[in-house]
Design a protein around this nucleic acid. Structure first.
Lengths: 208, 208
DNA sequence: AATAAATGACCGACCAGTCGGTCATGTGTC
DNA sequence: GACACATGACCGACTGGTCGGTCATTTATT
């Protein structure tokens, strides 16, 4: 009675993290379940004790990744009260999570996006996951903008455009990150984002 | 002494276009050579008369796609003399090539990007192809900005930032296109780009 | 002993690429 | 015009190998 007991939750998480590492290095299709098992230091069969299919590992991996990202972002902006500094922090967190010399995170997020937008993609049925994450980050930006207005830092007229501004900012950050990987060394990611932020702040701030 | 002769170039192109269609619908990895052959209405063996490997079909397909894109863009901006209108045309061409109901083009370009940035990606050795295309489009934007300055429409001080402005514009367009696919129906792509362009023009124009 | 956990050999589906053979079309000969 | 024949174009069955998923067996714990 009552034989060996393992923490199923914890072990699933470990497998998902091992998979995450491989997916980000090589991509989902190319990564084999056996490699995932090896990386997690277990047998291939054991993987299937914790996941029904390779797809499910992918879904668990993306959830690991998103939660890591959101935690990082929250940590970073927590305690920053100045709206301008807060906007900068959102942008910078994105940069710092993307090391140009090691573009694994971006590749991973691109793979997630791709599988989410294709109807028979592995993540299509779960695309609300990424949508929800985007919505969460967008909310942070919108709230910061509205906070800035109420603090008299940003122009009240921008309130109606707050959502649009947030969408554009986040889209830009993804776009420039993408290009920076592709054009390795051609431009300086930080300078580019600085230019964008400078224009943005200039555009929405109350001017003397 | 000389039997049926086919136009090898033409036939290669047909196969590449068939492949392009499938890659954009389903992705490279999932598309089989047999399906490409079927789509091109030829036998599988024949495909290998024209291409050495599946990879080579991919490369031919991306070249087909890029040339289509560049031709479209050139057609579109040809004859537009007003710098502001020209910038708008660049942005709009990108939108119109991406039908939100049929996001195949964007998926395709994402797949190209992905295979280009991964060291053992199929396109890694050929990533200069995309880089060159980006450089070409960027040059169009930079030239438009400089032209605008010399015409007295844009502020001369922006000349030194022309490259950066172009990089940001094109990165933004890619980013917002991406998000628009993912957030189907959540925001209006045209409105978002309008907002960006409005701010951009405002920022670089000579003001009364 | 009882039972949960772990395992890796095994299976079957799949697929890129090959190859032996067929087909279609042109040339040469009468 | 008829026929043989040369040759490039075309083909799909087959091969060698991969990989997701299963399951009979072993191991660990109480």
């Amino acid at each position: 009675m009552s034989p060996k007991i393992v923490d199923k939750k914890q072990k699933s998480k470990e497998i998902a993290q091992a998979a995450l590492k491989l997916f980000s290095l090589k991509g989902y299709a190319v990564t084999t379940v056996e490699q995932i098992a090896k990386t997690a230091s277990i047998g291939k069969g054991t993987v299937y004790e914790y996941f029904q299919a390779k797809e499910d590992i992918f879904i668990a991996a993306i959830m690991e990744w998103m939660s890591f990202f959101v935690v990082q972002l929250s940590e970073r902006i927590k305690g920053i009260k100045d709206p301008v500094a807060r906007l900068h922090a959102v942008a910078e967190t994105n940069i710092e999570l993307i090391d140009p010399a090691d573009p694994t995170d971006l590749r991973l997020s691109m793979e997630f996006l791709q599988h989410s937008m294709l109807e028979d993609g592995v993540l299509y049925k779960h695309r609300y996951l990424i949508k929800d994450m985007h919505a969460g980050i967008r909310k942070i930006v919108v709230d910061t903008l509205l906070d800035g207005i109420s603090k008299g830092v940003f122009r009240p007229e921008i309130a109606k455009d707050a959502e649009k501004i947030a969408i554009n900012l986040l889209a830009y950050i993804d776009g420039i990150s993408l290009h920076s990987i592709l054009s390795k060394n051609y431009f300086d990611l930080k300078e580019q984002i600085d230019l964008y932020m400078q224009n943005l702040i200039h555009e929405i701030s109350i001017d003397p």
